[in-house]
């Protein structure tokens, strides 16, 4: 309990609003499919994810290091137990520990291919079935997948990319005032964590309440038919393959509506959701300007919006 108290408060993190929003949406609706955070080192990615776990009770962050071996990830036979007592016991791996929690993979683009394989397999069904090295075992493994990557160090396999519900692009804070603020808070926190955390206690509680309310409201959020149509036409216009993006788009828009305290999904929610759901799913053509994608997205939303208005 002690260390949770000392966790850097989520509400004390300066800026990075998109990343924070994406994480919050996943806590409200754990079926969104997680967040892929793309950006350089030193942009408070890990801090933010850990802080989120500090904000929400009973939510842990299970770290999957890039060097993890397969048996640590999926689980294995507890050999010590077997030899000492003569009983077979399954030693759960990270996929078991992450059930109902956040599975956090830093530098996910550097993960070994065969680890990605088993991860994809478990993520597909929400169940980890282990059939290896004398063990036959199956347990639920539904987790919020949070990955970080520096795009300059290589891409993710399309299949893994598609598993992520949302993605955000983050950069260092450019505003001098805000940068100073980041440092000031960090120093304050390090000087006296206890006092610092206390200072944000109220804000933390408020945010948690807001999350809980949104979660309660989520089931009542109404999704008009024309919004379903908008989701599908966005998918078609942007040539996004498969249906996961359409469905995630709608679910994200509904979660956003719940978060904003609204009862019905509207085009503004769809637009906000599109920026979280689509960028990592669009196939960029070679030598295409990065901005081209944003423009295209905006264009489709605009034209779809005008169709809606009619």
């Amino acid at each position: 309990m002690e260390h949770i108290q000392q966790q850097y408060p989520f509400t004390a993190i300066v800026g990075q609003t998109r990343m924070k929003l994406a994480l919050i949406l996943n806590v409200i609706n754990p079926r969104l499919g997680g967040v892929l955070i793309r950006g350089e080192k030193g942009t408070a990615k890990s801090t933010t994810v850990r802080a989120l776990a500090g904000l929400v009770p009973n939510l842990n962050v299970v770290n999957l290091p890039v060097s993890a071996t397969e048996d640590r990830v999926v689980g294995a036979l507890d050999i010590e137990h077997a030899i000492k007592t003569g009983e077979k016991k399954f030693e759960p791996g990270l996929l078991a520990a992450a059930d109902g929690h956040i599975l956090y993979i830093d530098e996910i683009n550097l993960l070994d291919d065969h680890i990605v394989d088993v991860l994809l397999d478990a993520a597909a069904m929400g169940v980890n079935t282990v059939e290896r090295e004398g063990i036959s075992y199956s347990h639920p493994s539904r987790f919020i997948l949070v990955g970080t990557m520096n795009p300059e160090e290589g891409d993710l396999r399309p299949q893994l990319l598609d598993r992520f519900g949302l993605s955000v692009e983050i950069g260092g804070e450019r505003d001098v005032q805000e940068r100073a603020q980041v440092i000031r808070r960090r120093m304050d926190y390090e000087r006296d964590p206890g006092a610092f955390v206390k200072q944000y206690a109220l804000e933390q509680e408020q945010m948690l309440n807001q999350i809980l309310q949104a979660r309660n409201r989520l089931d009542q959020v109404r999704i008009p038919d024309d919004m379903l149509e908008l989701a599908a036409s966005i998918g078609i216009a942007l040539e996004v393959e498969g249906h996961r993006s359409d469905i995630t788009l709608i679910k994200t828009a509904a979660t956003l509506a719940a978060w904003h305290g609204q009862e019905t999904v509207n085009p503004a929610h769809m637009q906000e959701a599109a920026y979280l759901v689509l960028p990592h799913r669009m196939r960029r053509k070679p030598f295409e300007e990065a901005g081209g994608m944003e423009q295209k997205l905006q264009g489709v939303l605009n034209s779809a919006g005008s169709v809606q208005a009619r």
Binding site: G100, H101, P140, R142, L212
Partner: peptide
């Protein structure tokens, strides 16, 4: 309040 509660086997 585990996230898991929302994710029961269907």
């Amino acid at each position: 309040m585990k996230a898991k509660e929302l994710m029961h086997a269907a």
